[in-house]
Design a protein around this nucleic acid. Sequence first.
DNA 1: AATCTTTATCGTAATATTGCAATATTAAAC
DNA 2: GTTTAATATTGCAATATTACGATAAAGATT
Lengths: 110, 110
Amino acid sequence: MGATKTEHFTDKQNAIATLAKALGHPARIAIIEYLLKVDTCICGDIVNELPLAQPTVSQHLKELKNAGLIKGEIEGNSICYCIDEKAFQKLQAYFTNISTKAENKKSNCC
Amino acid sequence: MGATKTEHFTDKQNAIATLAKALGHPARIAIIEYLLKVDTCICGDIVNELPLAQPTVSQHLKELKNAGLIKGEIEGNSICYCIDEKAFQKLQAYFTNISTKAENKKSNCC
DNA sequence: AATCTTTATCGTAATATTGCAATATTAAAC
DNA sequence: GTTTAATATTGCAATATTACGATAAAGATT
């Protein structure tokens, strides 16, 4: 064993877990924050910003892209990566909902 | 190699990544959603709610607790687990901030 | 076309995660 | 005190993740 049993959970649960998992690494959080910081999304220097080797960064970018957190297109001999708002809006909505519900049931809880 | 290089990132980045990582599994999302659903937080039947063996569920609960997403106290021969609002408020604030910033720079981006 | 620059992929080693059977623990119930 | 019930821990196998050197790919520069 060792493989996640995704088939036993709902699509929505798997979708949120996939997004969360992709953000479950500080390098990928750092990448997202860098993409937000720079003005344009022609970001040819992500590698120089991170304390990781180029193949490692490339791999992290691929994971973020697979999860739908960033979009990327080839642009000459560099790459245009940028944040995919929709995914973050989904996360925002999800956690807002949880926070609200948690707040409401505070009373009859520990 | 293989271990995450946490020491190279900021505390805040690591903190968010830790929370996200803990939610990066559908079983743990399902646990959170179940804890929200039940009225009180005396939740002795989480195992019956999930398609996983008891030790596996126990392990997932432990991870959620370590990450600070749930609180738990022994209560007789069952356990009182419940959501730790603060962690979810942190996540809500983080993703709201990202969404807002992403929205603002939409224009000069792909 | 040879070279440079940038990003991706492959291969692989180190480590972490997932899942469960077996067992331990602990407190209630009898 | 013995049984029952609920949760935790241990140990281990299967799988996934992380990281990087080596190499490939592909457009830009000369």
